[in-house]
Every structure is written in C-alpha cells, then in structure tokens.
C-alpha cells in the first residue's frame, strides 16, 4: 500500500499569494467497487497554479468534476471560497459556478451555435440584465484575449484544434472566474500549439489574477505552468511539491512520470 509522500515544501508555505480558495478534505469517491479517490486532501491558494499529475483513470478528472459539482463525492468536504460544494442546492451551485471556470478536455463548444453564441451563452444565463452592447463588448474582449478577434460568426466545425481550445478558454474566462479548472488543456495539440496554449493560460492568469487546477499528462505543460505539482496515485495525494523537487525525487513511482 502506498503512503502519501510530502516533499519538503508544505502547502501552507507554497506560493502563498493569498488565502486558500479551494480546500479539499478527506474526499472519497467510488464508482461501483472501484474506489477512485480515498481520503484525498488538497489546498489551493490565491493566484496559484496547481497541476495534478497521475495515470489515466487515476481520478484526476473525477476530482475536478467533484469541485465544480458535476459529480457528487461519497464523503468529504470541498470548500470553494469557504462554501462546501457537495452540500449546495442547485441555486447555490449556480452561484458558486460563476466564480469557477472549467475548460473541458474536448472543449465542449456547442456545435449548433456560432462562436459568438457560444460566448454569449454563459453571459445570458448568469448576467441577465446585461444590454446587447455590453454583451458584444465582453465577447469582443474575450475573443481579443485569445487572439481570435474575427471568428465570432464562424461555427466551431470551421476551426482548427488550437483555435477551438482558445475559444473554449475565452468562454471559460468570459464570466471572469476566480478559479479555473483545466482538464488536459494541451491534449491532442501539436507541440507548437501546446506551448501557445501554455503561454495563453499564464498570460490570462496574470491578467485576471486567477487560481488554477490543471490536469495534465504533458510534462512540458506541467513545467511551464505549475507553481506546484500534485501526484495523484491510488486515490491519494502521493506527492506534493514544485516541478523541480518532484523531478529530482528518488521515488520510483514519481520518477516514472518525469522520464521522457
């Protein structure tokens, strides 16, 4: 049985730019007999980028889906800005979701809508009092942020993989969330586009002062954007430290992730 290894950096000393925004305590989640998360703990601070590493099927996506309330954990607490997500009713959940952005692995753009309609959709849901002029302004700003100003009238099917990822990022950011959850943001992209997406994530994080949890298998992406790396193994937080610390670790289970 594996035990959690914490490297010399403790979470509370780590890039403490602000108060904890996400606190996960004793999280358990199982699907049938398969226990995915068992007693998982994590704290994410303000303006911190935490990357969660782990094998396929380790429960990384399950973790962030529990944070946003798409999945309900079996037990444990997920405090987002001090409020426990699993205990929320649908209205409270909608409210807290305005503070959390979620970038889906497959982008999840609505393929029956244009890019502009995709970006307008969350705005119209959450801020119903906005005038058309304000909506247009916010959509233009979001498209400008990701460098795709002239794509508003295009359909998602007309865009390349990198462009789709940028539009999905623009949609995620349009509500100005304080926390962003990225589910494998560079999976399926070529190395050049992947680096562009990494840079974009960092630029937008600095601009909007967001905190992030990033799920990734792409070690270049991890190296570029992580303030802290969490290794999720066998349902627990197996290791927690900076990229360099984990890279230099002598632990075989950690080393296998860093061997190219």
């Amino acid at each position: 049985m594996t035990t959690a290894i914490n490297t010399k950096i403790k979470p509370e000393d780590n890039i403490a730019k602000g108060a904890p925004v996400i606190v996960i305590e004793h999280l358990f989640k199982r699907f049938g007999k398969n226990v995915v998360l068992k007693d998982f703990n994590l704290t994410v601070h303000g303006e911190e980028n935490v990357v969660v590493l782990g094998k396929s099927g380790a429960g990384k996506s399950v973790l962030i889906k529990c944070i946003i309330g798409l999945l309900k954990p079996d037990s444990g607490k997920i405090l987002v800005f001090g409020e426990n997500v699993p205990g929320m009713n649908p209205d409270e959940l909608d409210k807290v979701r305005t503070k959390i952005g979620f970038l889906f692995q497959a982008n999840a753009l609505y393929d029956s809508m244009t890019v502009r309609e995709n970006l307008e959709f969350p705005l119209r849901r959450h801020w119903i009092d906005l005038s058309q002029k304000q909506v247009d302004q916010m959509v233009s700003e979001a498209l400008e942020n990701v460098g795709l100003k002239n794509t508003g009238d295009m359909m998602p099917s007309e865009l390349s993989g990198g462009m789709l990822k940028r539009i999905a990022l623009a949609r995620t950011l349009i509500l100005k969330p304080e926390v962003i959850l990225y589910d494998e943001p560079t999976t399926g992209l070529d190395p050049v586009t992947s680096r562009e997406i990494d840079r974009l994530i960092l630029t937008l994080q600095k601009k909007y002062h967001t905190s992030s949890i990033v799920i990734s298998h792409d070690m270049n992406c991890v190296k570029n954007i992580a303030d802290r790396v969490i290794l999720l193994l066998d349902g627990v937080c197996y290791a927690d430290g900076t990229y360099e610390e984990l890279e230099q670790s002598g632990d075989e289970k950690i080393k296998q992730f860093f061997e190219q």
Binding site: D94, F102, A108, Y110, F121, P122
Partner: peptide
C-alpha cells in the same frame, strides 16, 4: 443523436457549468 452527441462531447456538462439546467 443530438443529445447523445452533446453528452459524449461533454456539451451537456458545459451547459450545467454555465448555470443552465
């Protein structure tokens, strides 16, 4: 087919995250 396709491409989850039931 439409909703099935939305389900497998996580568009239904995206809708929920956007505050839409």
């Amino acid at each position: 087919a439409e909703l099935g396709s939305m389900k497998v491409t996580e568009q239904i989850d995206a809708m929920e995250v956007s505050g839409t039931n």
